[in-house]
Write a protein that binds this DNA or RNA. Structure first.
Lengths: 124, 124
DNA sequence: TAACTAGGTTACTTTTAGTAACTCAAAATT
DNA sequence: AATTTTGAGTTACTAAAAGTAACCTAGTTA
């Protein structure tokens, strides 16, 4: 990708992968790809296992990168709608391909894990 | 992807993305995609910033999932060669597409970050 | 005899993620 | 009139993961 000793800025792939290199970003984009708009608690319900705090942190980071837009309606109780930006939608296409790969190959991966555990733990 | 309350096993996409949801896995596969075989220290030199421990941990995890194979030559000093398995190579294709997207859109993302920092930190 | 080598492991520190309780202000319920 | 509910978060705290640095192994070379 890049040479040695370069800064993050120089290396787009690494910089961007570092952003997705967390537990929730990719999954959040996939979920936002399924519906035009989603409110905070709708997202939270669909992304099984995410905590309120981590969803907030993830959405802020995606918003900062221009992948997700955040619309706040000044009501009480508050209403906030999240949606993918055009940039987010273009990334979604790549992530959908990745998701398809995952569905297609999950069995091979599970089998590999099985083999690995037998190889390293031969219960004597 | 899946409904609520399901276990990890039921949801291939989430399970697999959870594996790549770390700082080094994707980047390691991309590096192994550039050369048929790479030794531990060659990889370490190419993946800027990775520590010895994290490279070991990452490679073990990729090996466990059947994406990377590890060939140990019983010499002194030891020689260990890592390469992508056929499964790893099929994933590489998806990750290369993702890397291309990153190169193509890095500027838009950097501009978005710029806008975001100005919006949230208007130095009064 | 000491230093070097490649590919790790171990012990320890720092960063990040996860949990649970709390906030805000109006509207609805008791 | 006082209490509860509501959605979208914070805050403080704990657990887990990543980063750092020192150590190990056993043949070869200086």
């Amino acid at each position: 990708m890049c040479g040695k000793g370069e800064s993050e800025e120089c290396c787009p792939v690494k910089d961007i992968l570092a952003r997705f290199g967390d537990k929730w970003s990719i999954y959040t984009i996939l979920m936002l790809g399924k519906q035009e708009k989603l409110r905070f608690n709708e997202l939270k319900a669909q992304i099984t296992g995410v905590s309120q705090r981590m969803l907030t942190v993830t959405l802020r980071s995606l918003e900062e990168d221009g992948l997700v837009s955040r619309a706040v309606y000044p009501e009480i109780p508050p209403r906030v709608e999240y949606s993918l930006t055009p940039l987010g939608k273009s990334l979604l296409l790549q992530l959908l391909a990745l998701a398809d790969w995952a569905k297609l190959n999950i069995n091979q991966i599970l089998e590999a894990r099985e083999r690995y555990s037998k190889k390293t733990q031969p219960i004597s």
